[in-house]
Amino acid sequence: MKLNITALCAGYGRDNRVIDHLTLTVEEGEIITLIGANGSGKSTLLKTIGRLLPPESGGVYLDGRAVHDWPTGQLAREMAILPQLNSAPDDLSVAELVAYGRYPYRQRWRSSSDHDRAMVRQALQLTHLAALRDRPVATLSGGERQRAWIAMTLAQEPQVLLLDEPTTFLDVCHQLEIIELIGRMNRELGLTIVMVLHDLNLAARCSHRLAAIKDRRIRYLGSAAEIMTPEILRDIFNIQARIITGDDDIPYFIPTASCGGLPHPTHKQESSS
């Protein structure tokens, strides 16, 4: 399923428009990562795509139909969301959480079908959580917990998966684990993935394309090799960086300096200098 974002304006009221006439096409089966400075609107864009925020104008179209017009339960079978913040009751087990992913397929007066159970099992296997299925989510480590939530989104059998900073708060090993899982879901299940990541090196590692957001629009769009250049990084993040290309042809960046102060110095700083 193709995801089209056309002339999208979104934000938090008239005076606080975060995205302005943004246009982007996400191809079926690709992993695209939104990057940009704090407050650039990455998360807002992702939230609008996931119908968590209504657009002011323009639209997000899945399979030619605006996501805000889809019956929300039906859309939940095509598109799943991993929010940045979520909560689970203390006694909720991994298997129960993952089974909530079957909620969009529920039928009243019917308990779960064989297919429901098979999908939950498959999601647990893919995320390597089968052994932990009866453990309360609250007792898991950060990485395991994130995998459990991803397993829930997988149980929705979506075509499109939206991930909002899936690696934040995790240590390096668990970050890589999540990134590898994302790659596996894309290859084995053909999932189209749109995500927000703060770590550029991780983003370069697993994404087909990077979309860099600045000034309320997509400023640069392309492969990691095209986007990860000192000039673009300077423009987007206001940093000086060195780019090294590894043996696997994946570019890595090493930040060397910020480009002198904040991009928009406050009046106070101006007057004191």
Binding site: G50, R51, L75, A76, I81, P83, G101, D164
Partner: peptide, 9 residues
């Protein structure tokens, strides 16, 4: 959570 609930339809 609100976001997760919207995601589940």
């Amino acid at each position: 959570g609100d976001a997760a609930a919207v995601g589940l339809g």
